[in-house]
Computed example of a mutant assay.
Amino acid sequence: MKAIFLTDTGRIRQRNEDNGGIFTNSTGDCLAIVADGMGGHNAGDVASKMTVDLFNQSWESSLKFNTAESAENWLNERISEVNLTLFEHANNHAECEGMGTTLVAAIFTADFATIANIGDSRCYILNENGFQQITEDHSLVNELVKTGIISKEDADSHPRKNVVLKALGTEQKIEADIKTILIEDGDYLLLCSDGLSDKITEIQMREVLETDNTIEVKAQTLIDMANQNGGEDNITIILIEISADAESRCSEC
C-alpha cells in the first residue's frame, strides 16, 4: 500500500483549519484521517488538530485487526471518546465555544478497509466497478436531495451547501456512519475535505486517478485543480493505492 497526505490553505483563506495524517501501528495496519475544523477564531484549528492527535495516540497502542467487527468497534469507541473530549474542551474554554470538526477516517488491513465519517468530508473508491463515493454527507443539501426537494445537480450550487448537520465535538454524544469494504490490488481510495469535493467533479477525480502518473503527482494535480477552480476553502486529501505486496503496505510518500 502506498499513501500520500496533502493539505493546502487554498487561494482565499488565511488559515488552514484542516488537519489529517496517515499512521501505522506496530502490527502494520494503517489509519488515515481527514478532519475539517470549524468554529470562530482558532477553534477550527484546535478541533481538527486535537482530533488527529487523539486518534494517533490511541492508534499507536492498537492491536491487530483481524476482523471487520474489531475495526468497526475500535473506530466507534475512539469517535465517542474524542467527541466527548472536544465537547468538554469547548465548554471549558470560551475561545473554543462552538468548535467542531468533520471526520473521515479509514482503517486499512491487507484485506479490508473500515471507513467512518461525520459531516461532509468524504471517501471515494476507484476499483473494477468504477469510481464512487462510499460515504454519505451529513449535510443540509444531502437531506434535501434524499427527500426529493432538490436534485443532485441543484445541490452543487445551493447557497447552503456547506451547512453540515453533524460534526465531531458539537454534541455530548454522536454517532458516525461506519462501514467495511473489501479492497484488492490496484484499488484507489481517496479521502478528502469538501475543499476538494466542492471544486472537482467525480468525473474529473476519476480521470486524474486513471492516469499513469505516480500517486504523488495525482494528489498534487487534484489540489491544483481545486485551486484553479477557485480555491475558496482549505483543501485536504489522502490518496491510497492498494498493493498486493504486503511489505509495501502503508508506506507513506
Rank of each mutant, 00 (worst) to 15 (best):
D111T: 14
L126F: 09
P159F: 02
V141M: 06
E97M: 14
S139M: 00
A106Y: 07
Q133W: 09
I150G: 06
M99P: 01
E88F: 08
E95L: 14
I107C: 00
N129Q: 15
L86F: 05
D120I: 03
L126K: 11
V82Y: 05
E88C: 05
C96V: 05
A90H: 06
C96N: 15
C96A: 14
S151D: 08
D137K: 07
N83P: 01
H158Q: 05
T85K: 15
L144C: 11
Q132Y: 14
E128C: 10
G130H: 07
E143T: 13
L86C: 06
H138S: 03
N83D: 08
N127L: 11
Y124M: 02
D154S: 10
A110R: 12
E136A: 14
V145I: 10
C96Y: 15
Q133L: 12
E128M: 11
A113G: 10
T114L: 04
Y124N: 13
G130S: 02
D154A: 13
K146I: 02
V141Q: 03
N91Q: 15
R122C: 09
L84Y: 14
A113F: 02
A90L: 07
I118W: 03
H138G: 07
K152L: 12
L84D: 11
L144D: 08
A113Q: 10
L126G: 04
L103C: 02
L84K: 11
